[in-house]
């Protein structure tokens, strides 16, 4: 566990900044909800006039005036995108940063196997994602209590769980790519998260490209679908987790054979 602890220490500032930023944004969103609830009629008219743009965010299918609808559209977007960026960045930099910063020589001339390096770094990523999601969930629940709304437990937990799975998938894919890189991971990580986010928006806008939902993890993390179906789309989740397994397997396979310069 030495290396996992070391990774957690090294990443503590980034973890605090991302967790803090996502939490603050969620609190702000929830604090403005009571005001928006009072203007529901005008907001609904506005969304109706937005056409496919509203469809892209699922705003045409849920009532924005209820906490569940608001949470599914606003808060899940914040957590989905913010969490995706955080997960991609910690995943893509995990192995690549050792070579980029020149610390791989220090680390790998100690009696630690490459397999152990990959395993302990992966554990650090999973722990950071789990801790971030737990903190963000608690902040959300406290905020809902603060605005004196009833907590829609099932929907909230399902949406947060979907976001957690999305982050696991993205982190695992980026982790796999990280094993092939020597530098330049940040751009790739952010690029992947952004591209997958927009793929889901496109899939929402047109029925012809619905298949994109099978590619992007944002497909099963769609708050509107989770709330209307009352469950996660298991098929999409399974495909996503398969991508994650491929990512992790690629990380083990390549990093254990890689020449460190």
């Amino acid at each position: 566990m030495t290396l996992t602890k070391h990774e957690l220490r090294q990443g503590r500032i980034s973890f605090a900044v991302w967790t803090g930023a996502i939490s603050v944004l969620l609190v702000i969103c929830l604090l403005v909800f009571p005001e928006m609830k009072g203007q529901m009629e005008s907001i609904s008219r506005l969304f109706a006039a937005m056409g496919s743009f509203a469809a892209a965010f699922g705003m045409d299918r849920l009532n924005f005036g209820t906490l569940t609808g608001f949470y599914a559209i606003e808060c899940v977007n914040v957590l989905g995108l913010g969490g995706a960026f955080f997960a991609s960045l910690i995943g893509i930099s995990a192995l690549e940063k050792e070579e980029r910063d020149g610390t791989a020589e220090f680390l790998l001339t100690h009696p630690v196997s490459r397999t152990r390096v990959v395993t302990e770094k992966l554990m650090a990523i999973l722990l950071q994602i789990a801790a971030m999601n737990l903190i963000v969930l608690l902040v959300s629940l406290f905020s809902i209590c603060a605005i004196k709304e009833a907590i829609p437990w099932r929907e909230i937990l399902l949406m947060h769980f979907a976001c957690f799975l999305l982050q696991i998938e993205l982190a695992a894919i980026c982790f796999g790519i990280s094993a092939f890189l020597r530098r330049g991971g940040f751009g790739i990580g952010l690029g992947i998260a952004t591209a997958l986010y927009f793929l889901n928006l496109i899939a929402n806008m047109s029925g012809k490209v619905k298949f994109l939902k099978y590619i992007t993890p944002f497909g099963y993390c769609e708050g509107v679908d989770v709330v209307t179906d009352g469950r996660l789309d298991v098929r999409l989740v399974m495909i996503g987790m398969l991508f994650a397994v491929f990512g992790v397997a690629a990380a083990y396979r390549n990093y254990c054979r890689k020449d460190i310069h």
Partner: peptide, 21 residues
């Protein structure tokens, strides 16, 4: 037997780089 070798070896690189902070 890479790990066993490294356990009994000390290495001083030409350019020492450590983790920042």
């Amino acid at each position: 037997e890479k790990e066993k070798i490294l356990a009994r070896t000390g290495y001083l690189p030409s350019e020492a780089v450590f983790y920042p902070g």
